[in-house]
Each structure stands twice: as structure tokens, then as C-alpha cells.
Design a binder for these strands. Sequence first.
DNA 1: ATTTAATGGTGTAAATCTCACACAGTATAT
DNA 2: ATATACTGTGTGAGATTTACACCATTAAAT
Lengths: 231, 231
Amino acid sequence: METKLPTFNSVFSVDCVIFGFEAGELKILLIERNEEPYKDWLALPGYIVEQDESIDNAAERILYELTGLRDLHMQQFHTFGEVNRHPQGRVITVAYYALIRINGQKELKPITQYAKSAFWHPVNELPKLAFDHSEIFQTGFNKLRRRLNYQPIAFELLPEKFTLTQLQSLYEAVLNKKLDKRNFRKKMLSYGFLKELDEKQKGVSYRAAKLYKFDRRKYTKIFQNELSVEG
Amino acid sequence: METKLPTFNSVFSVDCVIFGFEAGELKILLIERNEEPYKDWLALPGYIVEQDESIDNAAERILYELTGLRDLHMQQFHTFGEVNRHPQGRVITVAYYALIRINGQKELKPITQYAKSAFWHPVNELPKLAFDHSEIFQTGFNKLRRRLNYQPIAFELLPEKFTLTQLQSLYEAVLNKKLDKRNFRKKMLSYGFLKELDEKQKGVSYRAAKLYKFDRRKYTKIFQNELSVEG
DNA sequence: ATTTAATGGTGTAAATCTCACACAGTATAT
DNA sequence: ATATACTGTGTGAGATTTACACCATTAAAT
């Protein structure tokens, strides 16, 4: 007894809010659109989901095609479904976010023609974005901020080896407030998932700081209980 | 330069995970389906979003049509987008949840023919549900549990006037563990958003407990900072 | 060689929060 | 009156959070 689903002129898309951290500043990944509507506008990397791919897979594919980045662990955070959010018809969009280290080596380079370019932009002083992308970004940023309070997601944004001061300024950038140096260090070190290295910072004209690494194995061991409730 | 969106045979739906609390048990709202596929199965109240309504509105409408309940504050919590989650085609579904008091007066009564009946079912010992609804339920339940730790959402589930013991057993049901009575009371009262009433419980064959009310005004005042970060 | 500029790195005390734990009081039913 | 069943209350130990200031180290400038 196979009935038919209704056919609407409706599509799903995904949009990606990708955070990076560079030169003491929190940034997100934007593209310059090369397609109507909103041609030449800045936008979050996003596109339409194919009929035969899951939205999770679509998110990975689309990010790759528009920016050249792949293999990030993106997570869905909200779905935007207002009727008129897209001028050409009914499009609901599932928004994903991820945090990555900005790696000067990896070039940002759109694979498709839909984007003219992809680049990092500081989260402060964002220009107006295409569609409702400003709202999507803001929702994602709030999510990130709240999440930082119970998960050490900051490590995804830093280079493999980092100083405690870098870690702290990342926290300060995300939370948008000053933290106390001594308390911050004490707390971070007390978690036990930071590995102190025998190396020091290079190329600074002041006392060089010790470098640390994030020890994912220890982290997982410590937090597996809390994470098992993850939905 | 109006290009056209692609037309897929794809639709969006919403599914609702509605929690209630009754007789010391946490329950969710289920329907008995009256339509293929999964005719006669139990399922979460859910249906297809119309082309000219936002998903938030769709959630309210659909819940009403399938169960007779309206005016709850539902919140989206996850979107499920696997390719084969629906046997008749590509359907992605946005899952919503809400907490309400089960009110014996309000009858559960489907308005449409799509549901044979709607009823409350304890969250423990849930039968297998239609589609991927068991997974959707589980994700929603995890969300509820985590949320309870930082927001007093429990009050939505209780009658207007309640005893501290009722409040505690609700927490215990959601978190699935015993709590200490003295610590629980101390903590709840310390928040300052419980209003002690001059009334007592009636109709019990033991010492009657004091009744309390949740004071939403005070709550909002106390927590406005934290909530303003809400995404 | 000395100074300057910039950041690195460290401890302590008070206040608050968390957690474990047990028993007398009171309303009702018989 | 007495049995039953739940209400309502306090304390101390330990852990966590917060506020707070100065000397150490390095490279560059003089």
C-alpha cells in the first residue's frame, strides 16, 4: 500500500559556520557568492542537499566544494525554516558548525564556480551577509560560547603546540571577557589533559613561554561519562 | 535574473517529543498511526510541513491536529536527515520538544484522521516506535536531561501548586537517580524563585506538605544574564 | 654593559558550593 | 491510643571558586 508523498517545490540546504583562530582573533569562514541571488555578497558556505545524500554528508561535501576544506567534524546546531528566508522559493537550511585551526599552508580555494573566493573574516565587525546568514552566524556563535563552558573545544582552534596565554586569549575572545591569568592556568592544568612539552616558543622578543599539547586520550578518559549523555 | 530552484521529491516534516509528568512518572505523548506507512504503529506526533508555513508554526499546528494540544512552547532540538529514514521518499524531519503539565481535564483527541488516538506513555518501557522515532525520542530525552542541569524546566511539568517532594521526584525521574532530600530542598529554595504558599496538600493520609509555586518573574530577573546568551 | 619593554610564571586566603548523613514532628486511619 | 507514612530540618568536611601582585626572563635598544 504505497501512497505517494506530496511534491513541493522545496529544498533543503546546509550552511556552515566554521570558526578559526589566528593572530589572537576569532574568525569565521566566508565565501563570496558567484551566483544569484545575492551574487557578489558575502555568505556562509552553504548549498543545496542532494536527494540521495544525508544532510551530514552534504555538509561535508558542500564545505569542501566551496572552500576546499575537508575532514572537519561538523555538528548540526539549528535548522532555519522561515517561509521567506530564500527569495527563490521554500528552502529550509540546517546549520552546522565546526572549529578548526587556521593553517596557513592549506589554501582556501573553491572547487565549484558557485563561490568566487573563500577567506577568513574576524567575527567582530562582520558585514551584512546574504540571506539570513547573519542570524545563523549569531546563533552559532552563541552556541559556541555556551559550549565552551563544558567542553574543551578550544583546542580544535589552536595549533598543535600552544602556550597557555594563547589558550587564554582564545577563551577571552570567545567569551568576550577578561579572565584571571593565575586562576585560568590553575584550572586548565588541573584538568590533566594538557601535556607540557620540553619546548619553548620561538621568535618572540620577550621571555619565551612553554609549549603545551592537548592530550586527547586523557581527555576522553576523564570525560567519557559526561559525554556519554551527549545527545 | 531569477533562476529556478531544483525540484526534488523531498519534503520536510516535524516530530514532537512532548514530556509530561503524572503519578510520579515521566511520560511522553504518542499517537497510534492511522495511515501507511507504519499504520497502527505507535509514533511521535509528527507530520509534513506545508509549503507556506514556517517549521515552528508547523510544529504547533501538527501537534494540535494529532493530539488536540495547543499553545505549548516547543523548541527545536535536532534535525534528522538520513536518506532512508522514511520508506516513501526523502523526508527530513525537524524534531521539537516541549514540557507540559498533564492535565486530566484536557482530553487528548486527534482532530485529523491521521491518528487513531493520542495518549501518554511512560518513558520507561517504550515499545518500538515507527520510523526512526525511537532514536528521535532518545535524543530528545538526553537533551532534556542535560538541560535540567542549568534551567528550571521542571516547573513546566508540574501542576501550578506543588510540593517539594513532587519536584524532587520529577528531578529523580528525569535524571534517573536518587537525590538527597535535604540538599535538594536547600538548593531549590536558595535559588529564590519558589514562592511558599499558605496552603497545604489535601487528601493525603499523612502529614500534608506545604505547597509552592514557581515565581517566573523572580526567575527571569535572576537568570536574565545567563539566558541572554541563549541561542 | 645597561636599560627598557613585553610577557611568563607563580601562591594564598576567604568565600562559596557540594556532599554525606539521621531523626523528631505531624496528619490521618483504625 | 497507636500505627503508618511522609514532612521538614542542620552541620561539618572537603572541594571549588574568586580576588589579588610581583619577580623572572628574554630580546632589542641604547
